[in-house]
Every structure is written in structure tokens, then in C-alpha cells.
């Protein structure tokens, strides 16, 4: 039998220094070599697991209660992941029990400067890993800036717009929704933050600003929180959020984005 060594890489492998893309993977015939095939499958498996991952509620409740006592736990109208995927509109609304709970918990309360909603979105893994650290830093910043912080809300099977209803009930001037983004092959645990000034039901994506790819390998916690606080301060000063805010700052700073892949 002849010795056979398929080309696991290509002579231009050094170009990988310039891009995270899967270049120079080699080939056997016209096909992908075994190693590259299995690496891809592993990444896809991780992304799939992230989509079907669940919030580690016990651990999250403990950590979030430690940051701001009085956590409110909520659930969208989508009862499970299949419904969540098929009915985006249900992921944007609270179920009846949660609506009732929110009404009871916010009755007679005055408003708050800042509300934070934490929702699983398309990757509960992202929330499990990154939400407590980011919420803790945001809460510290709120204290520093003298902003009152509303009770934290943890939503299962939630999409971004579920925050509108919650933020409105909390009477939050500014709302941050932390949510698991649609997993990419190389980023199964990417968290997004969507910001809204004076949230209310019926808003569309144009009314939000987005900070994407929050995770240590993407936008690290400290930098993410700095960016969030900057945007929140601008929202407060200019009394608006969304496309209008983005357009004005794109020209100058070029790093504020709106849109995203978790809506």
C-alpha cells in the first residue's frame, strides 16, 4: 500500500493571520479533508446546542439577586423552543401569568432611570456565561451616575421586543435588553445588548441601538459596558434612541450599530 498523506492545509496557510475565515483548509480530491470536516461539525454542534440551551436559572437568580435584590422572573408566550422558533411574535410578548406578575410587582411604583431585562434569545449559553458580569458592571455604573435601577427581569423564551412591554411597566427611562444572539459557527455564546429610550409596546427596531458580540473573544465586558454607558448617556441627553442616534454618531464615531441578529 502506498503511503498517502492528504493535504490538510494549503501552501497559503500563512494568510490565516489576516482573517478568521476558514481559508487554506486543504483538499482531498474535491473534498474537504477529514480534520477540517470534523472541526466544522464540532462548531456547528456547539452552535446547535447553544440554540437549544436553557437558562441556568438557579445560578442566575442567585447572582442577579446579589446585584440587585427583587429579581422578577418572566416567561414569553412561546412555551418551548419550537414555538419560539416558529412564532417570533410570541417571543415578543409575555404570557398571561407573567403579565399579571409584572403588574403586581410594579403597581404603585415610581419610575426608574434604568431597567435591565435579561432574555435567553437564541443562545441561553451566552446569558449563562456573560450576563451576570455585565449586569454587575452596569449596576455599578448606575450607582456612580446616580441612576436608579429598576428590579432586574429575567425572561425565558424571550426576544428583544419583549423588553418594550417590560420596560413600559417598570416605567424605565432607559432600557437595556441583554440577549443571546443567533449563534455563529465560531461564536455560540455571543451576547447582544439592545437599548431603548422610553420603551413602550409597539416600537420597532428603528427605535433601538445595538451593541453586539459581547463575549471575552469579541467585545470584552469592560469595553461593552463603557460603550453601553456612553450610549445610555447620549440617549438621556438627547431624549431619543435608535436610527436617529446612530446616524448622527456614525459620521463621527463610526462604531455605534443598530440592528443585529437576535430580534
Amino acid at each position: 500500500m502506498n503511503a498517502f498523506t492528504p493535504a490538510d492545509t494549503d501552501p497559503w496557510l500563512f494568510l490565516q493571520a489576516h482573517t478568521p475565515a476558514r481559508i487554506a483548509r486543504g483538499r482531498t480530491g474535491h473534498s474537504l479533508p477529514t480534520r477540517a470536516l470534523l472541526e466544522f461539525e464540532l462548531d456547528h454542534a456547539r452552535a446547535r446546542d447553544a440554540v437549544y440551551s436553557q437558562l441556568e436559572t438557579d445560578a442566575l437568580v442567585t447572582q442577579l439577586e446579589g446585584i440587585r435584590p427583587g429579581l422578577i422572573r418572566l416567561h414569553s408566550r412561546a412555551s418551548d423552543r419550537r414555538q419560539y422558533l416558529l412564532r417570533p411574535d410570541w417571543g415578543r410578548k409575555l404570557n398571561e401569568t407573567s403579565r399579571e406578575e409584572l403588574r403586581n410587582r410594579t403597581a404603585g411604583q415610581a419610575g426608574f432611570d434604568l431597567g435591565i431585562v435579561i432574555a435567553d434569545g437564541l443562545s441561553a449559553t451566552a446569558i449563562n456565561r456573560h450576563a451576570p458580569a455585565v449586569v454587575a458592571r452596569l449596576a455599578e455604573e448606575a450607582v456612580r451616575l446616580g441612576w436608579s435601577l429598576a428590579p432586574l427581569c429575567l425572561v425565558e423564551q424571550g426576544r428583544v421586543a419583549v423588553g418594550d412591554e417590560i420596560g413600559h411597566a417598570l416605567k424605565a427611562e432607559k432600557l437595556v435588553v441583554l440577549i443571546g444572539e443567533r449563534p455563529g459557527l465560531s461564536s455560540p455564546d455571543s451576547m447582544g445588548a439592545y437599548l431603548t429610550y422610553r420603551p413602550e409596546p409597539g416600537l420597532t427596531d428603528e427605535a433601538r441601538n445595538c451593541v453586539s458580540n459581547i463575549r471575552p473573544e469579541g467585545l470584552p465586558y469592560e469595553a461593552a459596558v463603557q460603550k453601553l454607558v456612553y450610549l445610555l448617556s447620549e440617549m438621556k441627553a438627547r431624549r431619543l434612541s435608535g436610527v436617529q442616534l446612530k446616524d448622527e454618531f456614525d459620521e463621527r464615531a463610526g462604531w455605534i450599530s443598530s440592528g443585529g441578529s437576535a430580534a
Binding site: 475565515a21 476558514r22 483548509r25 474537504l32 462548531d43 461564536s187
Partner: peptide
């Protein structure tokens, strides 16, 4: 490259 769009995910 490798069927994986690293920008559009």
C-alpha cells in the same frame, strides 16, 4: 471559505 461566512454568521 469552508462554507462559513464569518461576517454574516
Amino acid at each position: 471559505p469552508g462554507a462559513d461566512d464569518v461576517m454574516l454568521h
